[in-house]
């Protein structure tokens, strides 16, 4: 399957995670995606060594969201200059250890030559689950219940989409608009999302017609996720 199709979740371009020069000829480029209710680590393995590379396996260190491989790594033996694309399903059911940044993943890759290590950052929107629509009553009660001192506000600039498109793009990434109001020409979107570990986040977007800067307000009982959530809005609304 093509990454990103199906759910319409935003998939960042692959980045080189492991340099061949640092891994005896093994290069790994990768990204993260979410499709069919599952997270994937989409990777391209390239053999830049002069001999065959084989016997690949992967291990993830403990991380903030308990992400572990949901299957064995499937990479064939690679001849020199050969590349292979693989998609590793991930499951959020492993042991938890807080990482900094929050969605940092430490990865170990073994092959017939050696073991190599790298880290990469999971875009947090791949952890937004499909059943993240909060009941309207609960939203209103929770919004009231969380103290204004726990509200975090961000400006997101250079957003060129209109309110409908903003709502659709966010929804494609499991950020759900549960109410929309217009007050004196200003659109207010009330939205919810839920992370794989059950943490709910309530957001409000203020959109002024003709103004490309929009205001994101965020309330959650777990404020630690705020920065990563803001970054996900930023990413989704600029792609």
């Amino acid at each position: 399957g093509t990454p990103g199709l199906g759910g319409g979740c935003y998939v960042p371009p692959k980045q080189v995670w492991l340099l061949a020069a640092k891994a005896k000829g093994l290069e790994i480029a990768g990204t993260f995606s979410r499709r069919q209710n599952q997270i994937f680590m989409d990777m391209t393995f390239t053999n830049r060594a002069l001999t065959q590379l084989s016997g690949f396996a992967i291990q993830l260190n403990k991380n903030s969201f308990g992400i572990i491989p949901g299957a064995q790594l499937n990479v064939v033996a690679l001849n020199p200059n050969q590349s292979f694309d693989t998609s590793l399903p991930l499951s959020p059911v492993g042991p938890i250890q807080r990482m900094d940044p929050l969605t940092n993943l430490q990865v170990a890759i073994k092959n017939n030559i050696d073991v190599f290590y790298f880290s990469c950052i999971m875009p947090i929107h791949t952890l937004f689950v499909e059943d993240g629509v909060m009941d309207k009553k609960i939203y209103l009660a929770t919004w009231k219940d969380i103290s204004p001192s726990n509200e975090i506000q961000y400006q997101i600039s250079n957003v060129t989409y209109n309110t409908d498109t903003i709502s659709q793009k966010l929804q494609a990434n499991n950020i759900f608009t549960i109410a929309r109001r217009n007050v004196e020409g200003q659109d207010m979107l009330y939205q919810s999302l839920k992370l794989t570990n059950g943490i709910w986040v309530l957001t409000e977007l203020k959109i002024m017609p003709g103004n490309t800067s929009i205001t994101l307000s965020l309330k959650s009982r777990a404020v630690d996720v705020a920065t990563a959530i803001q970054q996900s809005f930023d990413l989704i609304l600029h792609n």
Binding site: K137, R181, M188, E204
Partner: peptide, 21 residues
């Protein structure tokens, strides 16, 4: 059942209070 008009009103009120900084 759930009184939706009441909920709608609550969101309108929330939006009203939040629209002015």
């Amino acid at each position: 059942g759930i009184d939706d008009s009441n909920l709608d009103d609550s969101f309108s009120k929330l939006a009203q209070t939040r629209s002015n900084p």
